[in-house]
């Protein structure tokens, strides 16, 4: 079992990662053509305005000092102000982030719910028709771009059959879940393909392990062997893969939200890019990276709980 010390250790490891994230975002902003002051003011700014903004943002200081200012502001929750909306970026993100989190959580849940039973079925009947059909179906899933899957689902289940709304978010939790179902299904499609393939391979490996033979030979019910021994051990590598896929899932959410007009941070990001609203793009990139690194931390903990060998 994971000790408190290991847990604290792992949590401390996140600090250099967070510093690297802030450094990366800081550098990307330095790549901006022209200086940030001109980007904020557009063509309207006079030379004095540019100088005033430069002093305000600390841009007349040396780069390392600027970085410290930047870190200080970020740690105080100040991500700047949106150029197009005139609202603090942090406030904007806090309003939109729950939508994206709900969407990715739903997608992750749908992907896991689909992947586990199908992987079992494919592994137990490996090489037979069921396995090959599931394999082929998911092979296509892996090669399908998320925006394409989205458009196809939208046309069939939204516009055609009218089972689901064709966009938006609705009011109240029930409405939210209903509106997000199709986008979540879209996101889940390729993730479940990745998880299914990996889990199927692990289950086949575990099924051949000696301890499973032993569990069988001591007369344990097949269902118990599968649940207690096979699933638990096969899940270890899939949990790792699941954690690593969270970044892809969040990236996919950016595109899915655009296809389904879901008012989350992904759509905000694309809108901000079109509007050249750099503070928002910068704030979002950083927030999403922090969210993903927190999920990585969570995955490490779950992994250590599943496999005691991981927590050394």
């Amino acid at each position: 079992m994971l000790s408190l010390r290991d847990l604290l250790n792992r949590m401390l490891q996140i600090i250099p990662t967070l510093i690297m994230i802030m450094a990366a975002v800081f550098i990307i902003v330095r790549l901006l053509p022209g200086d940030p002051a001109s980007a904020i003011l557009g063509d309207r700014g006079s030379a004095e305005d540019v100088a005033r903004i430069n002093t305000q943002l600390g841009l007349d200081q040396p780069i390392p000092v600027q970085f410290l200012y930047f870190v200080d502001r970020v740690l105080h929750g100040d991500l700047g102000t949106s150029i197009t909306l005139g609202v603090p970026v942090a406030q904007l993100i806090l309003e939109r982030l729950p939508v994206t989190l709900l969407l990715t959580a739903m997608a992750a849940l749908l992907a896991v719910v689909a992947a586990i039973p199908l992987a079992f079925l494919a592994a137990i009947r490996r090489g037979r028709g069921v396995d090959l059909t599931i394999g082929a179906f998911f092979q296509v899933g892996l090669s399908m771009p998320v925006f394409y899957t989205g458009i196809v689902f939208l046309t069939i289940f939204g516009a055609g059959l009218r089972w689901f709304p064709i966009g938006g978010y609705g009011d109240g939790l029930g409405e939210h879940l209903y509106h997000l179902f199709l986008p979540a299904l879209t996101l889940a499609f390729s993730l479940s393909a990745v998880l299914m393939r990996n889990l199927r391979a692990s289950i086949i490996d575990v099924l051949n392990a000696d301890y499973v033979d032993f569990a069988r030979s001591k007369g344990l019910a097949p269902r118990l062997v599968l649940l207690r021994h096979v699933l638990r051990n096969a899940l270890v590598s899939t949990v790792t893969l699941f954690g690593l896929s969270v970044g892809t899932l969040v990236g996919g959410a950016v595109i899915t939200e655009t296809v389904f007009a879901v008012p989350g941070v992904g759509r905000l990001m694309i809108e901000s890019i079109y509007g050249r609203d750099y503070p928002v793009v910068q704030g979002l990139a950083m927030t999403l990276a922090v969210v993903v690194s927190l999920v990585f931390l969570l995955v490490d903990i779950v992994q250590a709980m599943l496999d005691p060998r991981v927590s050394r």
Binding site: A24, L31, G247, Y278, A285, F296
Partner: peptide
């Protein structure tokens, strides 16, 4: 090792979109 940690933490497409947004 630290660079790897930071890069895999960024959702790849978000990072690429952010860079493309800056570069055009």
């Amino acid at each position: 090792g630290r660079i790897v940690d930071a890069v895999i933490t960024f959702p790849f497409i978000v990072l690429v979109i952010a860079i493309v947004a800056v570069l055009g």
